[in-house]
Design a binder for these strands. Structure first.
Lengths: 256, 256
DNA sequence: CGACTTGTTGATGTACATCAAGGTACGTGG
DNA sequence: CCACGTACCTTGATGTACATCAACAAGTCG
């Protein structure tokens, strides 16, 4: 059903990036921050943490002292049923907020695992309140991000509940390609996809075998190419059509 | 696939309830508010709105001047695909926040429809900023609620993606029963369920026919009873077992 | 080198969807 | 009052989109 290894984690911090120099911030997808906001973020950030590919960053049912932001790499969030079946909720890309649940509620309701080597920015959970109290614009951003995340999962749910296999696969691949594009990890209709067909299956509620056959159909129809982690879109319009995907829509978002 | 009628809406306000006298607030599931918080909520609340059963309260793609809280009744949130297939994201019960998306982002990404006659509390969208700025505890609550909603949808996604039909149905019914119970709409293992099997099907990504057959299995196994909108749990432990549902867990939550 | 991960493909099985028909309850207008 | 429609539930027959099983190829790793 799933495939969960869990190589070593390595939360070590060396020299950390000043939020003012954050490499993500210049990307057009992120809104501009004021100097005050940047100063606070810098003081809020308590460190960075590196995890190698395949590490479990947060575990369903546990509780972390930190809130994270993904600075570089790919990760994923998933839930597991008691008997091991696994559902990937979504993929995390640079700029995504991770572990808010454990900061705001009692414990994590899902796990987080890296797909590549990753760097996370660390924010101490107990200073989140400070953010809400003294930086309402940032608090608003946190809510915005959470609300957007909720919507993404809802879109995903609609896929799994009501789209056919080929529609689902087309949708997910297109979705991930576009998200990667927004953070500079894709371009020219090509992207490096660090996940396997098993991951796609676990995200779409399908078996690996059927996932494979479905992907092959898209490849044979010359809509995509995907080999050795290198992904390419050959016919975006047709792909979007199959996916019932709306190619418009694109809003600026905050990067806390 | 779906079944969407849309009777008339009637956003009329007469005398509105003071938040200090909110009938929901005393319920043990909601956290206590300070006098300051209550005073602000009262001033934030701009009215009430009644919708009869089957009304569309908010429409995917539109934009509302208000943020809502469900005061009484049942509603549901759903997305539709361009060709009409419909996925119910979740059900809304008294105390639930509705339409935050349209308040915080550009437009609604899903629709909201009432299942019974409903009363909503109205909050003007443009004063939400005031809440974030001057009432960080409430801002925190909004985030909390959003984060919890995200988790519920994630749980739902796990159901649709990885649970079998009988597990899904058991899970949903148990889940809804417990939520109803928390807001005083159920008790003694009995509840009034205002939705049809078509709704269950649209929530679980199944056909009505198969939903019916699955429900019958649960009835014939004497785990539940469900007739004429009257629902009863006969064997909660067994039902939870089938649903792979964790009967523990129960946290206080805010009611903004 | 074997062990393992990932992708691929065909054969078979099954959980579900679709189709079809009928039953009950409710409302409507004649 | 009945005749008629409509909403919802129910059940059996049939079809299919998917899962499961099995086997193998190619690459990687220790």
């Amino acid at each position: 059903m799933s495939g969960g290894k869990s190589r070593g984690a390595a939360p070590v911090a060396t020299q950390i990036i000043d939020c003012r120099k954050c490499p993500l911030r210049p990307l057009p997808i992120f809104r501009a921050f004021t100097e005050t906001e940047l100063a606070f973020m810098r003081s809020f950030k308590s460190g960075e943490s590196r995890f190698e590919s395949g590490s479990t960053v947060l575990m369903q049912g546990t509780h972390s002292a930190h809130l994270y932001t993904l600075l570089s790499g790919w990760a994923l969030r998933y839930k597991t049923l008691p008997d091991g079946r696994r559902q990937i909720l979504n993929f995390a890309l640079p700029g995504d907020l991770i572990g808010l649940q454990s900061a705001i509620m009692e414990e994590m309701q899902h796990s987080v695992e890296t797909l590549t080597d990753c760097v996370f920015c660390l924010f101490p959970r107990d200073r989140l309140w400070d953010l809400f109290k003294n930086h309402p614009t940032l608090a608003f951003d946190v809510t915005w991000l959470t609300s957007r995340e909720e919507d993404l999962i809802g879109e995903h749910l609609t896929s799994v509940g009501r789209r056919h296999a080929i529609e689902r696969v087309a949708f997910l691949l297109l979705h991930l390609y576009r998200r990667a594009e927004q953070v500079g990890l894709a371009g020219g209709d090509k992207a490096s996809f660090p996940f396997t067909q098993q991951h796609v299956a676990d995200a779409l509620g399908m078996s690996v075998v059927h996932t494979n056959k479905t992907i092959r159909r898209l490849v044979e129809a010359r809509l995509i190419r995907w080999k050795e982690r290198q992904f390419a879109i050959l016919d975006r319009a047709r792909l979007a059509e199959i996916a019932l995907y709306d190619l418009d829509e694109n809003t600026k978002r905050p990067l806390i």
